Simulated scan of single mutants.
Amino acid sequence: MELKSACRMLLFPVQMFYYIVRASLFSLLPSRRKDLSKEVVLITGGGRGIGRHLAKEFAKQGARKVILWGRTEKCLKETAEEISLSGTECHYFICDVANREEVYKQAKVVREKVGDVTILVNNAAVVHGKSLMDSDDDSLLKSQHINTMGQFWTTKAFLPRMLELQHGHVVCINSILSQSPIPGAIDYCTSKASSLAFMESLTLGLLDCPGVGCTTVLPFHTNTEMFQGMRLFVYNCCHLGISTYNMFPHLFPPLKPEVVAQRTVDAVRADKAFLYLPWTMHALVILKSFMPQVALEEIHKFSGTYTCMNTFKGRT
């Protein structure tokens, strides 16, 4: 028994190396994209921002039906009308994902009126944009309820039917701030870190469930109303006579929401589990995993991320 255990220990590094090399090679090969013509896509926070562009992109890529959830009827209606004009059937429902009973109730209405949801996109999110001591309790709770707990309720509402059909996909629009937090957005960073843990656990839990997959998208700062006024650290070295943006224009570009939407839909079609946008965010996560805290603090001071939320206005 001891000899068998020793052999397993010796083989373990070899096996890990094999799986890493194998996965790396497969990632370089062009993968087959799945057809969306039979998919019914539900997008939370689908009336504006990234959600609106996701709805348009899924419709463009051939989704059979698109369903929008959100709290603002005006935005939902405008987006639904635009998609319907493009030739794709689109429905919208008023739903606050932070309200568990409302999620379950509207999920039942969706099944009855539209049909089974086969792609769930958890996109709804809010950001308070203040330090811990400047934040009121209700605002902090709101961020956690919408950004994190909302995913629990929507996934519980739609995943069982996907498992029954052996066909479905759960998507989460997360943020790189879940792995590399910044000051001034403690509510958002915390909720997104929880959301990432939820998706990582869910992805592993569905490995033995044929036909059902997950995709987690971790984008860098995206130009949407939600982060209006946020000052990007790539511009904050002017006091040193340095323009970081000019030095590294391709490493840290602010993302366009339509690009995030395009890459997200492509990742879903390719059954990709995790998507970092841009690709340089991989390096950021790797560096953080082994750099000492003192070095990370110096980088934050140099780049100006300590003050990047000082001009934050958010969605007006």
Score class of each variant (00 low, 15 high):
residue 14 V to D: 01
residue 17 F to N: 13
residue 21 V to T: 07
residue 23 A to D: 08
residue 24 S to C: 11
residue 24 S to T: 13
residue 28 L to S: 06
residue 28 L to M: 11
residue 30 P to Y: 00
residue 35 D to I: 04
residue 35 D to Q: 03
residue 35 D to T: 08
residue 38 K to I: 07
residue 40 V to Y: 03
residue 50 I to A: 04
residue 52 R to V: 12
residue 54 L to G: 09
residue 55 A to F: 02
residue 61 Q to K: 15
residue 63 A to K: 06
residue 63 A to T: 02
residue 66 V to W: 03
residue 71 R to C: 09
residue 74 K to D: 06
residue 78 E to L: 10
residue 81 E to F: 00
residue 82 E to Y: 00
residue 83 I to Q: 01
residue 95 C to S: 14
residue 97 V to C: 04
residue 100 R to L: 11
residue 108 K to D: 14
residue 108 K to M: 11
residue 109 V to C: 07
residue 112 E to L: 06
residue 112 E to T: 12
residue 113 K to G: 01
residue 139 S to K: 12
residue 139 S to P: 02
residue 148 T to C: 15
residue 152 F to K: 04
residue 153 W to G: 03
residue 163 L to A: 14
residue 168 G to D: 08
residue 170 V to E: 03
residue 171 V to R: 06
residue 174 N to Q: 04
residue 175 S to P: 12
residue 179 Q to I: 14
residue 191 S to P: 07
residue 203 T to V: 01
residue 210 P to L: 08
residue 216 T to I: 06
residue 220 F to Q: 13
residue 221 H to G: 15
residue 224 T to I: 15
residue 227 F to P: 06
residue 230 M to N: 10
residue 236 N to M: 15
residue 239 H to Q: 11
residue 240 L to S: 09
residue 242 I to G: 00
residue 248 F to H: 09
residue 249 P to A: 04
residue 250 H to Q: 11
residue 256 K to R: 08
residue 267 A to E: 00
residue 268 V to A: 09
residue 275 L to A: 01
residue 276 Y to T: 11
residue 279 W to N: 06
residue 280 T to G: 00
residue 283 A to K: 00
residue 283 A to W: 04
residue 283 A to E: 00
residue 304 G to D: 05
residue 304 G to H: 04
residue 308 C to F: 05
residue 308 C to L: 14
residue 310 N to K: 12
residue 310 N to T: 12
residue 315 R to W: 02
